[in-house]
Design a protein around this nucleic acid. Structure first.
Lengths: 335, 335
DNA sequence: CTGAAAGCGCTTACAG
DNA sequence: CTGAAAGCGCTTACAG
């Protein structure tokens, strides 16, 4: 394949071999600037054959770009949130590499800014994607002050910041409505950290459904900030005492804890109690009985986040952003 | 804080303001080359005050380095493997950023090489970390051929490739031994994909323990490639029919499926059957009854992987690699 | 100890 | 349509 000649690794190599200028080679490869079809094709053929690709770093330096996007992930996310982050990452990575960008990750704990600062101060990224956004977080403030483009994954009210989000409110409203329409009016709602945007969006959907149907939500049965088995146990106890007809869990982790508690107490689902989750995973599907949940297209969410960021950077990603959508999946637990 | 003068963003800016040469500034910052203490401190003070950091990209170009490490993650990993990857990433990111490197991720499905090739052909990374290594994989071959330094996370027999791994064999041997010594000799072993290195290492540990105690392993009760609830159900059925005294699950996902199956059949743990997992998670700890498992220090594993790669690249990470170790955690399920 | 200069591998006005 | 040259922001022999 490769002649005995040394490998072609730089633009210069290509130019020399072809007896043209670097300028010409550069133009042939990038497609920018006027160039005759003949020359362009000659260069392209050569480049193809020799498996040459310009150094992204050098290109970046010349253009004052890095072709890197920073992705900020929480370092402490729970197992339950995992499919969400994995799918997000999948979507983000795919769009990024389609556009010849790369993803640089950073796992951040709490409100620690140092990692984010490192990336921007070292000038390693052109923009950032913030996941599990905390509204008005220090991170967002910092990025704004430093003029770093970013998009936020999660709910967002700030008109100046670009964001993408699952339709949590809508989906949870729909699911809640279905339960209410089944005649189950005393519903317990078990949720996670109130400081998270998702929690609030889902809660809103829950309330919305009640309002829409003119049913009073049972405030005393709304129990947030559930983080572990013990707390879940207490919440379940309370729901049972209050003779709730159903329990809605705000995510799979909580649903899982809830199911464990119910099992201990030998409660029959769905006969004695309906149960559903505002999220969806294999666990729910394969449970006995299978649990009603909501399926979000998180890969697409990730793709959208990445595309929006690329647009902010002046790129023009092939595909358009598409609404990520959701499906409520009814299973035996709410029969 | 910052005067009305324009912001200091390049070496040149610093040099001009201070009336010295770029060379001097560069030396003061990098600490390389002879320079008077006085000058060095002057520069450092200025740099500090103006919050200046050299552009990593430009620095990289001049040094023919990128200060980026590629991390290859499987795009399809299961929920059960998640804490493993998250902790790995945490460890890797921490060490990387301590050494002013960044992590570039790529999610790869199956044996698709294109993402890996992109990274190396674009010259975006100095080296790579391969997680969930498949022995002799195409990826490893490709990296070797192209002279890209890499380390593998997982079992590895190839003397030419650097790797790190949890002590799966040892840990599983220890746990199996404990069960056997309790007089439980008919043990069912439920495992995941045989093509994964982890599976094989753990299996070995299981056999090793039997050999050590001179007990014959019940081959007919060794059931691999369990991937879903149905298969787990069949395996459990078989174990019960054969009157196994205990079930060892090769990871938490399988353990979880197994527990569900046992619950349906109303089997009492540990009275009728002991059960333990070759991994550990919250799920196991909070189960009723709590399940015996093995805790690996995966964060440290990730750190070690990163440190080894940095060494390969000629860096000298602060801390030494430390054995990552493990603890067998005995809980009620094997009482 | 310090600096002028060349170089890392590209891109992009500018001139022809 | 094509090329010489300057420039992106650093590092590093080399000379002094």
């Amino acid at each position: 394949m490769q002649e005995k000649e040394k490998k072609i690794t730089t633009l210069d190599d290509v130019a020399r071999e072809l007896g043209v200028s670097k300028t010409t080679v550069s133009r042939a490869i990038s497609g920018k600037g006027r160039i005759s079809r003949e020359t362009r094709e000659k260069v392209q053929r050569f480049v193809e054959e020799h498996d040459y690709r310009p150094s992204a770093v050098a290109k970046g330096l010349a253009q004052k770009k890095t072709y890197n996007l920073g992705l900020i992930l929480p370092g402490d996310y729970k197992a339950t949130e995992f499919p969400f982050f994995r799918d997000c990452m999948n979507g983000i990575c795919e769009v990024a590499s389609d556009n010849d960008y790369d993803i640089l990750i950073s796992m951040v704990n709490g409100e620690d800014l140092s990692q984010i600062q490192r990336m921007v101060i070292n000038r390693k990224v052109d923009g950032m994607i913030l996941s599990r956004a905390v509204e008005k977080s220090a991170a967002q403030k910092y990025l704004k002050e430093n003029g770093v483009p970013f998009v936020v994954i999660g709910p967002n009210e700030d008109p100046d910041t670009v964001s993408v989000d699952n339709e949590n409110r809508e989906a949870c409203e729909e699911l809640t409505e279905i339960i209410l329409m089944k005649g189950i009016h005393r519903i317990a709602l078990l949720g996670g950290r109130e400081s998270y945007g998702v929690t609030r969006s889902r809660y809103q959907g829950f309330l919305e459904a009640h309002k829409k149907l003119g049913i009073q939500a049972e405030k005393s049965l709304i129990m947030m900030n559930i983080d572990n088995r013990i707390q879940a146990g207490k919440a379940v106890e309370r729901a049972l005492e209050a003779r709730a007809g159903g329990i809605l869990c705000m995510d799979d982790f909580i649903c899982d804890l809830t199911l464990q508690c119910l099992r201990e107490r030998q409660i029959q689902i769905p006969k004695e109690l309906k149960i559903a989750s505002f999220y969806e995973s294999d666990r729910l599907e394969y449970n006995h009985p299978p649990i009603t949940g909501i399926r979000f297209d998180t890969i697409r969410l990730g793709k959208n986040a990445c595309r929006k960021l690329l647009r902010l950077l002046g790129e023009n990603p092939e595909e358009e952003e598409q609404p990520s959508g959701y499906q409520v999946i009814l299973r035996e637990s709410t029969k």
